[in-house]
Design a protein around this nucleic acid. Sequence first.
RNA 1: GCCGAAGUGGUGGAAUUGGUAGACACGCUAGACUUAGGAUCUAGUGCCGCGAGGCGUGGAGGUUCAAGUCCUCUCUUCGGUACCA
Length: 871
Amino acid sequence: MEQRYHPELVEPKWQAYWKKNQVFKVTEDSSKEKYYLLEMFPYPSGKIHIGHVRNYTIGDVVVRYKRMKGFNVIHPMGWDAFGMPAENAAIDNNTHPAAWTYDNIRAMREQLKRMGFSYDWDREIATCRPEYYKWEQWLFLKMLEKGMAYRKESYVNWCEKCQTVLANEQVEQDKCWRCSQTVHQKKLWQWFFKITDYARDLLVHCDELPGWPDKVTVMQKNWIGRSVGSELKFKIDGRNDDITVFTTRPDTVFGATFMCIAPEHPMVESLSKGTSKEAEVAAFVQKVSSQERSAEGLEKYEKEGVFTGAFCINPATLEKIPVYTANFVLMGYGTGAIMSVPAGDQRDFDFARKYGLEIRVVVQPEGENFDGNTMKEAYTGEGLMVNSGEFNGLDSKKAMDAITGWLEKKGRGKKTVSYRLRDWGISRQRYWGAPIPVIHCPDCGVVPVPEADLPIKLPEDANLLEKGGSPLPGLDYFAKATCPECGRKDAKRDTDTMDTFVESSWYYLRYCSPRYDGGMFDPEAVKYWAPVDQYIGGVEHAVLHLLYSRYFMRVLNTLGMIDFKEPFTRLLTQGMVCKETMTCPEHGYLYPEEAVRNDEGKLSCTRCKSHVEVGRVIKMSKSKKNVVDPNELLEKYGADVTRLFSLFAAPPERDLEWSEDGVEGSNRFVNRVFRLALECMEKFNNTMFATGAFTGSAFELESAKAKELYIKANQTIKKVTDDIDKSFHFNTAISAVMELVNALYAIDLDSADDELKKVILFSLENIILLLSPILPHFCEELFEKLGKKGSILEQPWPEYREDCLETDEVLVVVQVNGKLRSKFTIGAQTNEAKIKETALADKKIKKHIGDKDPKKVIIIRKKQTLVNIVV
RNA sequence: GCCGAAGUGGUGGAAUUGGUAGACACGCUAGACUUAGGAUCUAGUGCCGCGAGGCGUGGAGGUUCAAGUCCUCUCUUCGGUACCA
């Protein structure tokens, strides 16, 4: 008999069995505790890659484990199906986004099924289906009604050639990633969700997410960016009007010798109007508006500004100070205006030096005597107040509240909190997305689509424009509409679509009742299943997707639709799977298989033979082509080995540089277990299987060998259980099972007595159960071969005996001055005096102590027994 | 610049609260079985040294009977963020 495991036969067999018996189909069951495990749903790009395999394997292991633990587990899968790649692919391949997307979904669904993941496929959703986005449109209308959604004019990255908005990450060095045209800022009317209303709540609850990695909550906190400060009012000279600034350093207000306002500030025009500076200011505003304001852009532009011609009054000194407009002041933060304190802020300092403005020291460390004329840089620290009237000599920290309070009494200021977080702009001038359900009427303005008209279906047959941009505005049958209010026939439908992050902000609720047509979700189903108990996905979504989801749950909570606020109780951010990139001068990025070693051992391009440059090791992504398709592994080793290997390579949260070295080891291990099981079946007589495995206490066992193995098996159960349950460290769980398997291999089955055989059987059965979440097909097969009935999924998770975790002999390690010198074993119950005596009598120890007297002997009896002799 | 994470054999990685550093694998070396081996099994494998022994967790200090683990400083890599007033 050939003793080899054949995944190509076994895996389809069990996949068919699971399907036929609908083992992964779940329904609400109030008698069982629910467990909602979710992996971030994929964008249907065409094929799954190793990163997906890793992500979904982690989830699947936990799901199968929790099932065996008796939970009613929901484990759904679906598709984040809207988005730009579909539009680009449609143009490139002369197809249609819908067709391309549905084809990809079909292909990827097959790949996932082939991996043996335990999804309840009846719950599958695709966000591009009208049945899904209908409810998103419905929610939009609700939010509009409640003032949670609004429209305003704002700047976006715009590519003129493609006629479209670009996300920040689609702008590469100021240029459009598709056509390399320079991107500029364009002002457009856009829809926004008022996420800032929840800034405080989102921030505060970051500290109440114990199941989230600190890394992620820290990133969210930084993103929300709370800072405490003051709003101070500066009267405009000669006008009965104020400019309000936000500052975190109200203590330095006496040093504010000028003011800067953002070029987009609504007052810029009126301030300069009628002054000699009017033209200059207008030109400057124009210039700044064409500047790129992303991170890369900022590096290139020097801080500069122009005097507006207007003055305002410093509320503390009552002096007239000039008002500048400057390119480094952001309209989107604070009030869009700052008081400039050159002595206390480096940017203001540089600006003052450049334009010859006064630098007045107001805070300096004790014992220092700064001079604004000779200072080399601003002093941003704390210290004692000077040049600040009645506050002189005060500690600057105390002066913050004191000065704010003083100005407040004069009606010139108040303490406030400012957030960095901005409202969420959701309009996209794109085709492949959910239409925004409003109509623009020349008479009535913005009119919501009546609920009964939902969904506003995206025309799936629209032809994409060769030059890019959305075809929707040009489609009369879509864009033309009748005003629901006044009946005017020439109203216009909003042809923007929603940001795809909107779909992913609530899909996990839809899974609870995916075919429900009475609302976004069936409240009863959500009450049972939600929130998600364990969410698993890439850390790249640490801020946006996870923040938007938290926001959405707050919106639904406010609307009274759900009774919780946090969507994901526990979060695992799995590390990225990385690989080096390869580029060729002719073809740019290459897929791994497009680079081969030539005769000289150098990498060359398969198409043009030119030299291939090996680039940095970065996260696998289709655009960089450094992706590994799991199909090859699947063909060669099957799903189980692929699963095992992806888990064994590293703990889940760690980044992983992909390499297939070592996959042989995983394959070898699976076959070792297989042969072990077969050998046992061959050599154990049938009665052994009939009477069953040993499950009693270790003390009942006669032979030391049996006892030792039995304890090892119990330890393994504990280790695997803890590793899966507490830390998701599957790599160490697997190595623990490997140790047990190695221990079994060390036993000669032919000479084993019945007692030992029963313990071997116990070990073997548990190995199969413990591995079953990781190697589901393989373990089902072995379980069946051992003569068990039904699916292994119906088995309870193994239990270990607390009293069988320790042997009655312990190893004592002996150190002299902290250095390991000897070891011996001794009865576990031996008292300390005896251990000490034995240690001191040890030959090697004697040699190291020599004739010196031990000063101190330390005995530790924790997980190790250790003796340290200090001489 | 700021925030965060990580640096351990040739490689992936172990080491739960300070207590045998290198589990488990990959790779490599030798041997066994075999017509054959990319199958399987056995033994070895941190570095230096013939040896006793010494040295070893990015680097430098420190605390401790004992430090990969705690403290101080520092270097490197990766991730996030960036004129945030």
